[in-house]
Each structure stands twice: as structure tokens, then as C-alpha cells.
Design a protein around this nucleic acid. Sequence first.
RNA 1: GCCCGCAUCGUCUAGCGGUCAGGACACCACCCUUUCAAGGUGGUAACCGGGGUUCGACUCCCCGUGCGGGUACCA
Length: 477
Amino acid sequence: MPDARVRTRFAPSPTGALHFGSVRTALFAWLTARHAGGAFILRIEDTDQERYIPGTEALILETLSWLGLNWDEGPEVGGPHDPYIQSLRIAVYREHADTLVADGNAYWCTCTPARLAAMREEQRARSEPTRYDRRCLTRQAEVAVERANGIAAVVRLRMPDGVSEWDDLVRGHVSFNNADIDDQVLLKSDGFPTYHLAVVVDDHLMEISHVIRSDEWIPSTPKHLALYAAFGWDPPRFAHVPAVLGPDHQKLSKRRGARNVLEYGELGYLPSAIVNAIALLGWSSGDEQEVFTPQELIERFTLERVNSAAAIFDPKRLDDLNGIHIRRMSTDDLVEALEFPLPGTSKETRRQLIPMLRERMVTLADATRLCAPLLGEIKLDESVEFPPKKVDQATAVKMIDACIEAIVDGGLDNHAALLERLRAVAEAAGVKPRDAFRVLYIAVLGSPTGLPVIEAMMFLGKEKSLQRLSDARARLG
RNA sequence: GCCCGCAUCGUCUAGCGGUCAGGACACCACCCUUUCAAGGUGGUAACCGGGGUUCGACUCCCCGUGCGGGUACCA
């Protein structure tokens, strides 16, 4: 159902590069917007000055762009709700916090961190939930004096009584008893808002219709709902997507080695394959299709089909999908994509290589290894048996001599004739072609495996091929 | 401690009271084959445990267990 009113956002904090977990959340939000024909907004949540890591903001934009997750409003492109960087919107949050205090939905608090810590410790000891005891709420006149005297103060949400509940698009009905929920700090003593205040104010002001975020936010949602109610605003729909776990069953995190998604590009993974792989982490189409282009994903994706259980990322699955996406690429696109793994080659050279390469790459980087014997000299590897197993010296000599002879006679243009002639020699020697041909692979490529040998020789040309064959012939004695 | 969530092959998942529990990755075998791949065919492999509800539970309810998350003047 096209619905231009659907507005989703991805709101990362610039505290590090994006990993598969965060990118998947971004993807789900992007797909939801694109599926509906709505808008996708990017907002930078940099309200924590302590954790800010310079440069990561640029990294985030680069990652999303590389993956093709384009945003309609946000950094670089602007939009009607500019700025989209929270540290530039401090006045807005401050104003809203004042309103909350004026209406009695929030209050100033001057409790010290030390008192708070002691309080929580006692609560734990009594098996009670840890939450602010509202000491300052009962002494607001004194707090006002303290503030006037320059004592550090924060604004806390006055969590209402009752129950908080909502129908989560992936979880279904969720409810919390408000008595278990803390009076959250909304404005820190440094004047910056906490996430909770900023996210609600911005999501409302930016007209976000669907808040799609990771499920670690579930316990905070009652606080957000209380804020919407306090402001008199309609809350958005919520969709809490499950976590992505690493092979150790722990949540993906930078510490513990979760890779920066951009690194996958350097390793030769395609954006479309990565998008496909992470979409399948928690989402399924409902039929048996598992290979999707980004466009197909846009058509098929709905939040209702997102699974609520955490998923472990499987690199093998990405490899499989990457190979499939490479095989489905057009030759022109491959010519471009191969420039990085095959530096210094011409477009024409890459075009010639592609037919041999296409079915053999898991990542684009495999092209480097596979093409090395064709683009440079072969390296003699001591560990490569020559002649190979199941082939005796005499047969090896016959294969090489026959190959040299055939090339001298007929050149390299007639692929079929050359193949036929070599097969005949192998059979006459009583050796299976599969074994006998290994001799040629080692001679021409330096390895018993690799690109198809006749095609490789055609690429190398007559002179170079003959040279390698006679070098190998000499090694056989 | 307190609160919340999740639970099907090793992994990602389908399933929405009655199925031989399906697919994909990985793995194994075979076929194809100039190597390696790719492709094709087949195979091994799962409903966390215990109670209910029901004529009948993977499916609904409860308890337990396990795992994850929250519990901050971090997001």
C-alpha cells in the first residue's frame, strides 16, 4: 500500500563505525519507507559529548551511501526540519523540557551521583526495583534555591502511575507496569538532553510515523510514551527489531570484533549481496525466494514478516549470496567492479577475463588471486607436486609435448580442436583427462587449480604459453 | 536483585490445532566436466523440558530451564 505519510528514520550516534546489526536496523527502516513510497530520514544523535568519536559521522554517511540506503532528509541533503544533528538543536530540547516542568510533568533534581548510587544499592538489597525515590520532587522550593546558587541540576520525567502499553509491529502487544519505571533524566546538568527527550521531540517534530529501532529500546518505550502523553502528542507506531548476534551468541559490538561494514567492500563484497544477506537476518518473504535485488526487497518487505528472535550472522551465507550476485552482474558492471582487485588492467583486458572469472569468484577480491598467473609471471611453489598424483613422468611429458606440438601446428584459435587433441593423448596414455590435464594447469598457471587452462593460454598468447610449457617440460627432465 | 523479551536442523528460517515439519547456507555422496568452480540430483540433520487445554498440539495456556536485553546525568 503506497502511503506517502510513512516516514521512518535511522538515528545512529557517532560513537563508532556501523556493523551488521546497526545497518540491518537502518535497512529495515529504509525498506519500510521505500515500500510505502514514504520518506527515509537520517538523524545524527550526538547528545553524548563523552562518547563522541570524531570522524565516525562521515563513516556512517559513507556506509549508508555505499549500500544504497539513500535518505530523503538529513545531513548533506537537508530538509524541512533542518538541522538533523541533535547537538545543533539543543535550544529546542531545552524549551520542551521547560514546558514539561511548567506543566508538572517533569521536575528539577539536584541529587548527587553518590546519593543516587547509595540509594540504588539499598533498593537492590531490599529486592526492590532500582528507581529514583523522588526525594527532590517533595522539596522543589529548596531545589530552586540550590539551582540559583549554582548547584548542578537535572530535569527528571515524572513517570505517571498506571500501565504503559502499545502494539509493537514485530512484537505484538507489549505492556509495562509504570511503577517499575524510573523517573528518567531528560536534561543533563551540562544542558544536553538525554536520548529519551531528544528522540521523542525530534521524532514528533520530524513527523516520524514508524519508529524502527533495535529491541534494546523496549524497556525505554514506556518513558517515551509518557513523554508523548505529557506533550499531548500522538505517539508513532513502534517496531522493535531483534538483535544480531555474533558467532559467540553475544550481541554484535565494536569491541569483540564486529566488523565495520565498509571493510566488506574492501574484501570484495557487493552492496546488493550484503543488503540481501542482512535482510534475511530476521525477515523472510513467506515463499521460497531467498535471493533478492534491493528493488525486489522494496517490493516484498513488510515489518509484519520480521521475526522476533535474535539471529546469528552467518558469514558463509553472505559468501554464497555474494557469489550469486556476482554471477548475476552484467559484464559492463563487472568490468567496472573489477578495477579495484585488478589494478592497472584495461577495460578490454578485464572484459576478456570475465568469462573465465565469473563462476569462480566468491568475492571480487578472488579475481586478484585467480588472475595473477595471467597478469604476471607464475610462481613456482615447492609444495605443488609435479608431475601430480596419478600421472607418471612419461605421461606428463607426453601431455606437454602434445600441447606444444598442437600449438605450434594449429595455434590457439581452435579451442575445440586443441581440447580434442589433448584428450586423445591422455586417453591413449590410459590416464583420465581430469588427471592428465593437471600437468598442463601446473605448467601454465603454476597450480593444479585455477582458471580454465586452454582459455588461459589463449589469453596469454602463443609465445608466452609455449615458453611456460617448455619451462615445465625442462623441469620434468 | 528487579523488569522485559525470545526459544523449529550446526546457522538463517517457513509453519499461524490435523504437514511424511518445508526451503536456504554449511556438510556428505553422485552426475556433469580441461583443473577449480558453477550447475544438477540425492542424503545426514530440528520442534528446550514438564504440566495442562483439546478428539488432536511445533502451534494455545502455565511452570521451569536456557539465552538476550534493560535497570546510567550512554545511546
